[in-house]
Structure formats: C-alpha cells, structure tokens
C-alpha cells in the first residue's frame, strides 16, 4: 500500500514560545504535521480542539494545507472526549500528535488516553514510517540520543512524535492567511484539574551538587563548603601526546560515552 494513500489526521494545539510565551504553532505538533505532510501530502487532515479564532493556528495552515477542523471549545474544556468522538468517525488510519502540549498542564497524557479510548495501539516517539504493507506499518521509533528502534504495528494506530521527528517546514504567510478554519460545535466537558491545581511561574531548579555520603559532621562540613567543580579545568601542558590521550580517555570512560 503506497504511503500517500494513507488516511492521516494530525492533532495540533496552540503552543507558546519558550522565551516570550507568545502563542505560536507548537514545535512538536508542527513536526507531526510535517511527518503527516511527508506521508500523505495534501490529503493530510489536521484537527484542533479549542478556539477557532486563535490566529496562531494559522501557522499550521501556512505549512501548505487548505483547511483544518476546529472542534470549538472554551480553553478550560477537556479536549479528550471531543477528539475521540471525532476520530472514531473520521476513518483515519494514522493519527499523529505531539508528545506534550506547550501550554496548560502538558502532561502528555492525551495520546495515551486517546489510544486507550479508541482501542488503538500507540507508538511513542515516531520518527519515520518506513512502509505499510497489508495494513501493517513498519516504523522507526526514536530513542534518546539519536538511537532508533524498528517496530511493526497494525493500522489504524496512534503515534506521538517528539523532537526526533523531522523539523517542521516553514509556515508561509500567504497560505496561512487563505486557509480555512472549519469550526465544529461539540459538547463541552469541563476539565476539573484547574479547580484544585494552580499554575505558577516555573521556579528555577538549581543544579544538584554532588551527593555526599558524609558520616561525620566534619565530612559534611567539608562537603558543604567544597568548591563547585568546573571552576577551571585541568590543563595539561608540555605532556607527551600519549599522556594527553590517556587523560582524555580516562575522562571519556568516566563519562561513559565510549560504547
């Protein structure tokens, strides 16, 4: 089955720039759209649950899509029921999402819950769809530090993408402006989380000092007042290349990067 006949829906959300907090297309969602566009081309459908007036959504259309569906919801609503209702009827074979939202809770639960509700398998960290034959897809899953694992999964399935997926193409102003946001009314289910939880500006977390197993007060004192490491590196001057290489090798093995 050629990849470009796949029926793919990408779920998108409104992101926030990490520095300014300004609304934008979410990085991972945009990568999911990119992956979808590479697989299905213009047949890709994209879906959002939220406010159809949100301008930042147009950035997804600017990637070369004529329209997107928006399930109209107020911001504090739970997107899950609306999305699963829609997806159940949409006839998609592959649903792509980002790993976690850039705004709100960002628990990253949505793909898991959707998969559970739809009864579909979920591939986490999809990097590439290699082939689809007889309704079975062979895909590459991204592992940390650029590693990959090959998986086989039956259609239809859900996949989340992380930053290992291909970088999203540029969003162009013209198509973004011309694209259509098709709003659909859905029943609203309130999300109860924010009745008990509060969002607050992120507190910076200091880097943990080396854990000291001190047995005596003196040792603890010594540890507590120890110089932070890295205040100035070790410089090997006038050493033989072999001695230098030995020192480097020691650091590499200590860090465990030699595999």
């Amino acid at each position: 089955m050629p990849l470009n006949t796949l029926n793919i829906i990408t779920l998108v959300s409104v992101g926030a720039h990490p520095m300014s907090g300004r609304a934008r297309r979410a990085e991972q969602d945009a990568r999911a759209v990119e992956l979808g566009l590479r697989l299905a081309g213009e047949r890709l459908r994209i879906l959002h649950a939220g406010d159809p007036e949100e301008e930042a959504l147009r950035a997804y259309l600017g990637m070369g899509l004529a329209e997107m569906t928006v399930l109209q919801q107020p911001p504090q609503a739970d997107a899950l029921p609306a999305l699963s209702d829609y997806l159940r009827q949409a006839g998609a074979q592959l649903v792509l999402t980002g790993t976690q939202a850039e705004t709100g809770e960002g628990s990253g639960m949505l793909p898991y819950l959707l998969a559970e509700q739809l009864g579909w398998p979920l591939v986490v960290g999809l990097a590439e769809v290699e082939s689809v034959t007889d309704g079975v897809a062979q895909v590459l899953q991204a592992l940390p530090r650029g590693q990959r694992r090959r998986l086989q999964v039956r259609l239809p399935f859900l996949a989340s993408v992380d930053n290992a997926a291909p970088t999203a193409r540029q969003s162009a102003f013209g198509p973004a402006r011309r694209g259509q946001l098709q709003a659909q009314a859905v029943s609203v289910v309130e999300d109860v989380l924010f009745s008990e939880a509060q969002l607050q500006p992120a507190r910076p977390r200091p880097k943990r000092l080396k854990v000291i197993k001190a047995k005596t007060g003196a040792e603890r004192m010594k540890a507590a007042t120890a110089k932070a490491s890295g205040g100035g590196g070790q410089v090997l001057k006038d050493v033989s290349p072999e001695a230098g290489a030995e020192a480097i090798l020691k650091l590499l093995t200590d860090e465990g990067v030699l595999r």
Binding site: M63, G64, Q170, A172, F173, G174
Partner: peptide, 11 residues
Amino acid sequence: TLEKGATPNKG
C-alpha cells in the same frame, strides 16, 4: 517566503 515558505537555512 510568503507563499512557498522556502526561506533557506536559518531563515
């Protein structure tokens, strides 16, 4: 840039 979204490299 505006229609094709094809500003190269870091653009």
